[in-house]
Structure formats: structure tokens, C-alpha cells
Amino acid sequence: MGRLDGRVVIVTGAARGQGEQEARLFAAEGAKVLLADVLDDRGEALAKELAEELGADTARYVHLDVSQEADWSTAVATAKEAFGKLDGLVNNAGILRFNELVSTPLAEFQQVVQVNQVGAFLGMKAVIPELEAAGGGTIVNTASYTALSGMSFLTSYAATKAAIVAMTRVAAMELAGKGIRVNAMCPGAIDTPMTNPAQLDPDADPEATSEAVAGLYRKLVPMGRIGRPEEVARLALFLSCEDSSYITGQPFVIDGGWLSGVPGFSAS
């Protein structure tokens, strides 16, 4: 018995990184998963792999630009056509841009808002009627450590992630009476292409890059390492299953203790 048996869940940004691990784990736990992304080749390959491993009706892929309302309508319709209903969403898709506040072009700021903040808003808006029709369900929004703590050069990103936490709280209050729980994850540094773009660079030395990243987070994070995407996936699973049945409207920090403070030097 899986913890998501009988559930149908959309996972956005599912072609790689956290979204990929969420899709893999949800499918392994019995869910039927609609993988959604703009990386069509990778997304289609992953959906095919999951279907071959776990059953033909386990996974489907749909192209979804989360900033486009029409794409959301198509995704919801695809989930219903493929699996008969919809009762879960993991709003994972997002983008990251580094820039000093005064150097951030308006177009760049608006792009991040459109994908991260508007994308999460449109996703919730699109799925809520279907979750209500299914008798209830869960929404897991992906915010960030930066929604709760300042970080230089991340004005646009932090602003969108703080907005996601706020929207999560409002949605949880509005939807509690309909049996729909809404929570947010606030990851710190996670070893994905977003935080470590060298993973996508064919000319990069993977060993040197990995060691440089590991060395940075050994200094910054109390647990002494960067997070793994499968660890975030396990939190998404917890928030999507009955283990969290009395939890809604909450931001869950998963950052190896980073929000607690930067480690100091030993007194010994």
C-alpha cells in the first residue's frame, strides 16, 4: 500500500530537479502523476520511464508554461481525461535570477514574478474546482528559505517566494471548509540545476564543481552540506498524504538549519 494510492496529482517543473524527484516518489507511492514542464523532451522521457516501471496508467506528460492561464486549463483537462479526476497539486516550477536591486531591469523582475508568483496563483486557481469536486485534496506550494530571511542579490526571487507563503495562508483559510489543505515548502540550498547551473554545462568539471559547492555549504549550513532534491520530495509527500491531515496554511522550512544562523567557530 502506498501513501498516495488512488490520488491524482499534478507536479509542475517535473522534468528535473525537485520536481523530478517529487514525480518519482509520488508515483512510487501509488499516485497517478501528471508531469508538467516546458522541457518537453525530458518530461516526456520521464513520464515514459515511470509508466514502463510502474504501469501504463501511472504517468502522463503535458507541456505547461505556468505563467499562461490557457496552459493551466489544458493541464487540468489532461489530468481529468487521463485519470478521471484531480485531487492534488505540487506547485514546484520556478526560476531564479541573481541581481543587485538597483541593477535589476523591470523586465527581469516581472519575468520572475510571472513564473514564480503568478504561476503559483494560476495553478491554485485552476485546480481548486477539481479538488472540491473530488471531495477535497492538497496543494503544496514551493516557496523558499529566502521568503523568511534576506539574501543579497535576490530581490525578485525573494519577493515572489514571500508572496507564495502569503497566498498559501489565505488559500488555506478559504479552502479548509472544502477539505482542501494548502501548505508551503521553504527549501534552502538544494543541489539542483537552479542552484548549481554547472550541472547543465557540458564543459564543466563535475567533480570540481561538486567540491566547490560542497565546500561553500559546509561553511554556511549547520548540517554541513547542501540539500538533496529527494529530501524535498519527501516533505512534499508528507504534506500530500494523510500523515499531515491536521496541517494547513503552514510554511515548512527544509534547509539543514540554515535559517537558524550561520555556524561559528568551535570554542575548543
Rank of each mutant, 00 (worst) to 15 (best):
215 G>P: 14
99 N>D: 14
179 G>I: 10
57 D>L: 00
78 T>R: 08
197 P>G: 09
161 K>N: 10
33 V>T: 05
36 A>T: 04
31 A>F: 09
78 T>V: 09
221 V>C: 13
213 V>T: 15
194 M>R: 03
210 S>R: 15
259 L>Q: 15
173 M>L: 11
90 V>I: 15
59 A>L: 02
222 P>N: 09
59 A>M: 04
121 F>T: 05
170 V>S: 14
219 K>H: 13
21 Q>M: 09
257 G>L: 10
225 R>Q: 12
127 V>H: 01
228 R>D: 13
12 T>A: 02
227 G>D: 13
87 D>A: 06
268 S>L: 06
138 T>W: 11
69 E>R: 11
83 F>T: 00
200 L>N: 13
9 V>R: 00
198 A>N: 10
263 P>R: 08
109 F>E: 01
259 L>N: 15
211 E>N: 08
86 L>W: 06
80 K>R: 14
41 D>F: 02
153 F>K: 10
24 R>D: 02
48 K>I: 03
197 P>Y: 12
206 P>H: 08
13 G>N: 04
214 A>K: 15
40 D>Y: 04
215 G>A: 14
35 L>Y: 08
48 K>A: 14
241 C>W: 05
90 V>H: 03
180 I>D: 01
212 A>K: 14
241 C>A: 15
190 I>A: 03
41 D>M: 07
117 Q>M: 11
38 V>R: 12
223 M>D: 13
218 R>P: 03
240 S>L: 08
101 L>N: 03
29 E>S: 08
170 V>A: 14
204 A>C: 11
111 Q>F: 01
168 T>L: 00
5 D>Q: 14
228 R>T: 07
131 L>I: 05
231 E>H: 12
218 R>T: 06
249 G>R: 13
239 L>T: 07
245 S>C: 07
37 D>V: 00
68 Q>S: 12
29 E>Q: 14
166 A>M: 07
110 Q>P: 00
218 R>H: 10
207 E>Y: 03
254 I>H: 07
19 G>A: 04
63 H>S: 08
90 V>S: 00
177 G>S: 10
219 K>C: 01
186 C>D: 13
232 V>E: 09
11 V>Q: 07
126 A>M: 05
181 R>M: 03
137 G>P: 00
259 L>I: 15
93 A>E: 02
145 Y>W: 13
138 T>R: 03
17 G>R: 03
210 S>F: 11
15 A>P: 05
16 R>W: 06
171 A>L: 07
42 R>G: 00
138 T>V: 13
228 R>H: 12
99 N>E: 14
147 A>Y: 13
260 S>N: 13
158 A>K: 03
191 D>R: 12
258 W>M: 04
83 F>R: 00
158 A>N: 01
34 L>G: 01
227 G>H: 10
126 A>V: 03
243 D>N: 11
45 A>M: 03
211 E>Q: 15
179 G>L: 03
